[in-house]
Write a protein that binds this DNA or RNA. Structure first.
Lengths: 351, 351
DNA sequence: CTGAAAGCGCTTACAG
DNA sequence: CTGAAAGCGCTTACAG
């Protein structure tokens, strides 16, 4: 009784903001002339068949009048779940991420699920961060983006996005199909000397591009000599350097298949350095369909990943995992978007 | 006693994950041979002068052994604050945002503050979203990025980032100084016909660029006729179109000062369309220093905003606002980064 | 169909 | 310096 936790009387400064005390379920109950339990039933969506339609109406109306919303923490504390899932990412500034997050958030909205974006600090690993978030009961479950956990047990329900590891459910892009589309586009244009500007990052998704690229060329009867490959670090400058190597080969490749738009942007820089006109003397294919592919000059032909859908499907898959029905969804198809960086090779490639 | 909220026994699936029950403060207390209150004191950082060093050690050790972390929701419920602040943004895919969020998160980490990224859905306005988050006690306070609220009262403590409105504390980039640096760079290179490719977005930050650009040219004795201006929508294609206009003027501007890297990327496309070599016959200045400026071909000279610092300062300012000491920090200086898209005009501009 | 009551795990005056 | 106790606002069997 002597007790007075006035956390929210501090709510006023900033805007001049009304320092209204939050109404509680009790107050709503009083106004509606029902018990607090009934109010809870209505707001937790468990009213069906337990509260009469008429009473539910009265409750909702009273709540509306008072501006009531259930207190998230009280609910979490009692029910043992936060209805928040974490999206752990190695790099929060990844241009792809915004769309994935948006897709996941929108998919969760209907079920009242919130997605929290979590980036482990530079000094911490994701495992530690995940365990802490789980232990603080800040999240119920998590999605790992582009992280391949070394061991098969995570501290809680987990889904991997664009990553694969033993014992985990993955939500993947169909990069094989995407690669086939990209390389097919170059073949259709008449290219034969199609080099691969890849990256040496560990995730499986990159290896899949490399092997599929090779397979498509094999099928077209193109030899390994005609189609060189260089693996670069995942950065503009690394890609630029690697592209320099590729472009100083004789005969020079007429097309570059790049593992990502970022690498393609680096290749564009290299072509510019060497005064090789794109697409007249060199075609460059990106991969992912980020803003970078649109903003590049010339605009990059690329294979677009359905980033929002990826996020949405990941969230739905995670929800099923939490229910114990873990089923991996089929890989999401990518879409070829030919733009200005690809064209037929200048003359039929000498054989 | 009949009561059994087993929220966390569901934690197992996904990874094979250990379904350890979370330890409570009580269990830590027992192991350490102290009361639960003492454990709480230690973990809420209020131990100084209230718990002996020796006891504190014992508590921490016991906690470590059990893997204890205070339950965030229990703490929130009791203390009346979440230690989470919202970062409300109109567009979660803005390439600038990642850095701002990172800065804010890192600045908050020391104080145990978490930053939640919130994007109102397409159909909802930010006010509604903010009120809901606040009412659900999901956040204590918020930062609005690039949103200028029409009215001076927000539903809770609020700080504006790169936006200005009556009655609110703002955290700003020094875009005037940035503009001076950008335009000064072009003047130093010898340009006189420096056009402005601006945007018609409402935030004050854009108007500041326009007026400062004009002022710098005035000071250099350059007339309005020599320095045309076009305002475009904030998109690549809009910028491309606007740049076309600017570049078909006679005499043609020798330099373009763009309000943002995105617009500069659009200008680069227009120059490419018209076969105007950059920087030989046209210099293009970006603004912001996003990935776009690095990935462009040629790389954009730009004025770099300290995005992480912006986020960090915003968070610190918000914390002070919540304490009632609202003081606007001084605008953060921007840094001129000359790259490959600017060079002296081809010949001394005729006058 | 509705209500009374216990209890989730903390924080916080207060008493000692 | 330490502990006992109340209570934050919900959810959830259980009884009626």
């Amino acid at each position: 009784m002597t007790d007075d936790p006035t956390g929210r009387s501090r709510r006023s400064p900033g805007g001049t903001g009304g320092a209204h005390r939050r109404p509680t379920g009790h107050e709503v109950a009083e106004l509606a002339g029902v018990s607090q339990s009934t109010v809870s039933l209505v707001f937790s969506g468990k009213a069906a068949g337990r509260v009469s339609a008429e009473v539910e109406q009265r409750v909702r109306h009273a709540a509306q009048q008072l501006g009531y919303r259930p207190h998230a923490s009280a609910s979490t504390l009692r029910a043992g779940r936060t209805r928040t899932v974490g999206l752990l990412v190695p790099d929060i500034t990844n241009p792809f991420l915004g769309h994935v997050l948006r897709g996941a958030q929108r998919a969760g909205r209907a079920d009242g699920i919130t997605v929290a974006l979590i980036e482990p600090g530079p000094e911490r690993n994701w495992q530690l961060t995940a365990v802490e978030a789980l232990n603080a009961a800040a999240i119920d479950a998590m999605m790992l983006f582009g992280i391949e956990p070394p061991l098969s047990d995570a501290p809680g329900p987990t889904v991997l996005i664009e990553a694969v590891a033993d014992g985990f459910t993955s939500v993947l892009l169909d990069v094989r199909q995407g690669t086939t589309a990209a390389v097919g586009h170059l073949l259709d244009l008449g290219h034969r000397r199609i080099a691969h500007l890849g990256t040496d990052l560990p995730p499986t998704t990159f290896k899949a591009r490399a092997s599929r690229w090779r397979r498509e060329l094999d099928r077209a009867g193109i030899t390994a000599t005609e189609s060189p490959e260089v693996l670069a670090g995942f950065s503009l400058q690394a890609a630029r350097g690697a592209a320099h190597q590729l472009l100083s080969l004789t005969p020079r490749p007429t097309a570059l298949f790049c593992d990502d738009d970022l690498l393609a942007a680096g290749a564009l820089m290299a072509a510019h350095d060497l005064r090789i006109p794109v697409p007249d003397e060199l075609s460059i294919m990106g991969f992912a369909g980020t803003l970078l592919s649109e903003a590049a000059t010339p605009q990059l032909s690329t294979v677009v990943a359905p980033a929002e859908e990826l996020g949405a499907v990941a969230l739905q898959t995670l929800l099923r995992t939490m229910d114990g029905h873990a089923t991996a969804p089929r890989p999401l198809p990518m879409t070829l978007v030919p733009r200005a960086s690809t064209a037929p090779p200048q003359r039929p490639s000498p054989r």
